[in-house]
């Protein structure tokens, strides 16, 4: 838990107000050598882009453990962006190639689980691409804005109407425990 030092706490009213004017919370993991410098360039070039992005600087996109991305969602992010050097430009020569595999698999995995694809983004932004960075951010913010607040980890409310239909065999409304005949008993082969 954080310690309160000097920063005043947000008052309840302010929080409510914020709730009404919902803005997406997006966590961005930027590689130190390219994308972070690119974002810097966008700043020094006075390029405007959406401010809903929270940047975390990492040494390389290869440093981004898929766990970081998942943890960001758990801790309340509405979207995640990971950005690194273009292939071939990696400061550590191959970090982003390894990262590319991880991200491709992670994206497929969490989208398979039902995560909205508008919430998770990857980009290559070089140190010279300040304008591309602003474009990427705007795109990401727009996409997450469309997707709305992420409530995937709130407890689902079950009722008859929202009952989930699943392919027949996945979730059989199974027989009661052991209400099978005894000769079908598990793992038996009679001697």
């Amino acid at each position: 838990m954080k310690k309160i030092k000097d920063k005043p706490q947000e008052s309840e009213d302010l929080l409510l107000e914020k709730d009404r004017l919902w803005q997406p919370r997006i966590v961005a993991f930027l590689c130190n050598w390219c994308s972070y410098a690119g974002a810097d360039l966008a700043g020094t070039s006075r390029i405007k882009y959406n401010p809903q992005i929270r940047i975390i600087r990492v040494p390389c996109s290869g440093r981004v453990n898929p766990l970081f991305i998942l943890r960001a969602f758990i801790d309340g992010a509405d979207g995640v962006l990971v950005s690194g050097c273009h292939p071939g430009d990696c400061h550590y020569s191959t970090g982003n190639y390894f990262a590319r595999r991880k991200f491709a698999l992670l994206k497929r995995l969490i989208e398979f689980c039902g995560m909205d694809e508008r919430r998770i983004h990857f980009s290559w932004v070089s140190a010279a691409e300040g304008s591309k960075w602003s474009q990427v951010v705007n795109d990401v913010v727009n996409a997450v804005y469309q997707a709305g607040p992420f409530t995937g980890f709130d407890l689902p409310v079950f009722s008859k109407e929202t009952e989930i239909e699943t392919p027949a065999d996945l979730c059989k409304q199974g027989p009661e425990r052991f209400a099978y005949s005894i000769d079908l008993m598990s793992r038996t082969g009679k001697k």
Partner: peptide, 17 residues
């Protein structure tokens, strides 16, 4: 069959599980 379900349903399925 599972992949044909819309994403919200898939997420709800895993939530449930």
């Amino acid at each position: 069959g599972f992949e044909k379900m819309p994403s919200e349903k898939r997420w709800a399925f895993w939530q449930n599980q």
